[in-house]
């Protein structure tokens, strides 16, 4: 069975197993589109390699041509050829069906979770010193105004959270406020969900526009309380330089 065709089959199978099962052990699983693309590239490379000379082409294509033609076939090769000839049109049919069958899934929504803030909210510093009193006041305000959705434990699991889509942010997650500056939080709390740009899908957000109800001082102190309670630190300019 050894030969270019056998080697190609081994390489393709190995590539597929590596992409599908081994790579996900090290990183996130690859989407099917990417696996298909890598397999196509591998196949193209093999084709290019085996069509470089007449000899290698014949070694590669000869067995395929003889197998598919059905000439002088005996034993297992006969039903195997029949199987290939039956499976190929079925694959074409299956592909046609999956590409054309109407989906009953809603269109995917690519909501940007942290869209860019308006210019006037970039780089603002918290004007209140981080004293224990200010932090404590911030935590008290947080408990009163924010915890119903964002949770007493700053984990986004407040009693009102399950009803909202998108869900309230989990501040304890290092992917939320730890990635943001205080001025960003100031914008999001002050202007609320309705202040988001179109990519943030403001029409779905239940985040209140707190500027209607709370003075700036309260918002800055809530931010302090949030970071302290969630055991996170704001992203600062110094870190980026």
């Amino acid at each position: 069975m050894k030969g270019p065709l056998f080697n190609s089959a081994i390489i393709l199978t190995g590539m597929y197993l590596a992409l599908k099962f081994i790579l996900p052990l090290l990183t996130a699983p690859l989407p099917s589109m990417l696996i298909s693309l890598y397999m196509l590239l591998t196949l193209s490379a093999l084709m290019i390699f085996y069509t470089m000379s007449g000899t290698s082409l014949d070694e590669f294509m000869g067995p395929i041509a003889r197998f598919l033609s059905g000439e002088n076939q005996v034993g297992i090769a006969k039903p195997a050829r029949l199987l290939v000839l039956v499976v190929f049109p079925l694959l074409v049919g299956w592909q046609t069906y999956t590409k054309l069958a109407p989906s009953d899934q809603p269109p995917a929504e690519n909501r940007t979770i942290h869209p860019a803030p308006p210019g006037e909210f970039v780089g603002l510093a918290n004007p209140y010193p981080k004293t224990p009193e200010n932090i404590m006041m911030g935590k008290g305000l947080y408990a009163a105004y924010c915890s119903p959705c964002h949770g007493a434990n700053f984990d986004g699991k407040g009693p009102a959270a399950p009803g909202f889509n998108p869900p309230p942010a989990n501040f304890a997650d290092p992917g939320t406020i730890a990635q943001l500056q205080e001025s960003y939080l100031f914008w999001r709390i002050k202007k609320g969900g309705v202040g988001l740009p179109v990519e943030g899908m403001p029409w779905k957000s239940a985040m209140p526009r707190w500027e209607k109800e709370l003075p700036d001082e309260f918002i800055w102190k809530i931010i302090m309380g949030e970071y302290d309670g969630a055991h996170q630190s704001p992203r600062t300019w110094e870190e980026e330089e």
């Binding site: 397999m39 196509l40 196949l43 084709m47 069509t51 190929f88 694959l91």
Partner: peptide, 29 residues
């Protein structure tokens, strides 16, 4: 065997192998 119509056959084989592999991969992946 191939020398007669080698170009055509090569092209056809490449198309068929590509289609079958692509089909199988798209099912598996």
């Amino acid at each position: 065997y191939f020398s007669a119509s080698v170009k055509k056959l090569t092209l056809l084989c490449i198309i068929l192998v590509g289609m079958i592999t692509g089909g199988i991969v798209s099912v598996l992946a």
